[in-house]
Design a protein around this nucleic acid. Structure first.
Lengths: 163, 163
DNA sequence: TTTTTCAGTTGCGAATCACTACCTATCTAA
DNA sequence: TTAGATAGGTAGTGATTCGCAACTGAAAAA
């Protein structure tokens, strides 16, 4: 792979930003629980076995980052519902990629339950890296390149309203 | 999405295992630096600005987990080379998914440098979730299902050596 | 031989984590 | 309408971990 050593810290990279939101202990496990349909403090607490103050802190941070939405239930105002926002739901690829890596290299066992396509009941594909045309890419097939050094593909002609 | 509340902790899931290896502070940033071609202690230290004892601890853990390989250089035996193993390189999809999420929802700016396909110089596609046939899936198109409840697709006949 | 470099280790104060007990608002039953 | 019971937190305390700086030890360079 092409190597490109330079000042990585000064480079705009979404990874530190993502870790700022999700990098603390428990954050990903809370997210997984939310994907699995848990919505309430006591559900998270008893399922994950996390300390209550830490859970309160993490839920607050996830809400502050717009990953979960906090909403008291109208029929029982003691109950607070934590629900994934669009931003939170968009972490699913990252979570699945991490989980699949753990299955492959750590547990050696396929996780259960598994995400299946509702349309045909078949499990989803493994998360992979693909070229712009969909070909699967290995690490050796790629290199790092500055955004401004990239020559855009010839774009298909776009229809345009002419005055 | 189909909801399936149950004892998540007892379920075999690769996510806790992955977080055991990669969930601590700095681990992902060290990995990113390794993907960017850094190989030596002082390179990681000066680039990331991480404390030396923490860096030593994280490199040791990553080596213990088989994510990095540690090898003294033959020409200068003071120098230790840390190199991604196959297991470590296989974290790339997870790292990119996280980074892309950070770009989309936190920084709002495409990261630089960017991974491009060596063959045509075009940036890689965004990491997505796909059905077994390659269709892109949204969260609403999927549900959780137990592995043993899945009816396998009719598999294409396999050629077999007959004695 | 002396100095510099690389890859750590050690000591110490600050921050974070986990465990337990407590608190407050709300709901339910008598 | 008062007495629990429940949901969702806080507060206090000790154990870990983190970050900074200084130090070490082996190997290379001068």
């Amino acid at each position: 792979m092409g190597e490109l050593k330079e000042d990585l810290s000064a480079i705009g990279c979404g990874l530190p930003a993502a870790l700022e939101a999700m990098g603390e202990r428990w954050s990903f496990l809370i997210l997984r629980a939310a994907f699995n349909g848990l919505h309430h403090f006591e559900e998270f607490q008893s399922t994950l076995g996390i300390a209550r103050n830490i859970l309160a802190n993490r839920l607050g941070r996830l809400v502050d980052h717009g990953i979960l939405a906090r909403q008291p239930m109208p029929d029982d105002r003691r109950k607070i519902e934590y629900r994934l926002t669009e931003k939170g739901a968009d972490l699913l690829p990252a979570m699945l990629a991490l989980r699949q890596w753990g299955e492959t290299w750590e547990t050696g066992v396929p996780s259960t339950p598994v995400l299946v396509d509702t349309r045909d009941g078949q499990p989803i594909r493994k998360v992979t890296i693909q070229a712009h045309d969909g070909r699967a890419l290995q690490l050796g097939d790629m290199c790092w390149r500055h955004a401004h050094d990239i020559t855009p593909l010839e774009t298909p002609p776009r229809l345009q309203v002419v005055a």
